[in-house]
């Protein structure tokens, strides 16, 4: 693993040189809010930020995509255009860690070709979180503001305008020029101090009760889900949620995000629905993340980014709800 010290303009020049061959996605302002979206220059990219509204799963498992065109006489498959490779700039550790969770599903027993192609042709440059948000709780789920899982290159500040780069993969090596200096011990300890400060700033913790599994049948879920308006925002903005629908629009078959809170999610054609009540839908979301995903893939499908709580219109708080269950 290579480590480099670069000053800000060296880093910017390096990234600028990549615009020619890559499509660059980065955190950028739109209508007063921050989103990960394609950018044309480094001027559009924001450096100091907590989690943008969307997360980087959008660029691997997009909100909607045409799978194929199906007619009586022909079937034409659509694969993503990956001729121009992509770089995701300044991804946060929670989002990159979630990609590893999605890999287990989409590159598992059945390989999802479009997801796999996008994964293979995307390079991720992560940026450590100096000032995590109040709603963050990544540490209690095994992550951290300076964690690097799922990144090809990680960038951590040393001091103002000076950065420590970790080149973590071959893909990362391909985009970072040989330059800068090797880190001095003092620089490493400065970064370490910033890391500790950031970790200490994360006060929220998710504590899954030891009898969580047995609580499945408890009336608790009816109470806590009362406020839910089944809008699905928590699932759409979640970096680890991955449920989807497959629908036809004319002759195009489309895969689009779906949510377990929807009234049609488990409703069958003849009208039967074993998960009709709202509390059952909400409970499914919680148990899918904190129980079933762990049983099936070894890890909890929540990375502690806090978006579900931040953007919930009725202020449902996943940390409180799980901790008090």
């Amino acid at each position: 693993m290579d480590m480099l010290i670069l000053n800000k303009h060296e880093l910017i020049d390096n990234i600028k040189s990549l615009f020619k061959d890559y499509e660059i996605v980065g955190p950028s302002q739109l209508d007063g809010k921050l989103y990960f979206r394609p950018v044309k220059s480094m001027d559009e990219v924001v450096w100091d930020f907590v989690n943008p509204v969307n997360n980087i799963k959008d660029f691997f498992f997009p909100p909607s995509q045409v799978l194929y065109e199906l007619r009586q006489d022909r079937i034409k498959a659509f694969e993503p255009d990956t001729k121009k490779k992509r770089i995701i700039l300044f991804a946060k550790s929670c989002d990159t860690r979630a990609l590893n969770l999605l890999d287990k599903l989409f590159i598992g027993d059945y390989k999802d070709t479009s997801y796999t192609a996008r994964r293979e042709t995307t390079t991720i440059i992560g940026l450590s979180c100096l000032e995590p948000a109040d709603r963050c709780f990544c540490i209690s789920l095994g992550g951290g503001p300076f964690a690097t899982k799922g990144m090809d290159v990680s960038i951590s500040p040393v001091r103002k305008d000076k950065f420590l780069l970790h080149i973590l993969t071959d893909k990362g090596k391909d985009i970072i020029a040989e330059q800068g200096t090797r880190p001095e011990r003092e620089e490493l300890s400065l970064t370490e101090a910033l890391k500790q400060k950031a970790e200490e700033a994360i006060k929220r913790k998710i504590n899954i009760p030891s009898d969580f599994f047995e609580k499945f049948d408890s009336d608790y879920w009816k109470g806590v889900s009362q406020a839910c308006i089944k809008c699905g925002i928590c699932t759409y903005l979640c970096p680890a949620c991955h449920c989807f629908d497959i629908i036809d629009e004319g002759y195009f078959r489309i895969r689009c995000w779906d949510t377990c809170s929807s009234d049609t999610f488990t409703k069958m054609a003849a009208g039967e629905d074993h998960r009709k009540q709202k509390y059952k839908k909400y409970r499914q979301r919680i148990y899918h993340k904190f129980q079933y995903y762990k049983e099936n893939f070894g890890e909890i499908a929540c990375v502690g980014c806090g978006r579900c709580t931040t953007y919930c219109p009725v202020k449902m708080d996943i940390v409180e709800i799980v901790n008090n269950s």
Binding site: L105, Y110, I246
Partner: peptide
């Protein structure tokens, strides 16, 4: 068992019950 399914390959999430 009959259950609502979309993908058929254990990914879309509809027919998930328990693990």
């Amino acid at each position: 068992l009959e259950m609502k399914m979309k993908c058929g390959i254990g990914q879309c999430g509809r027919c998930n019950v328990g693990n």
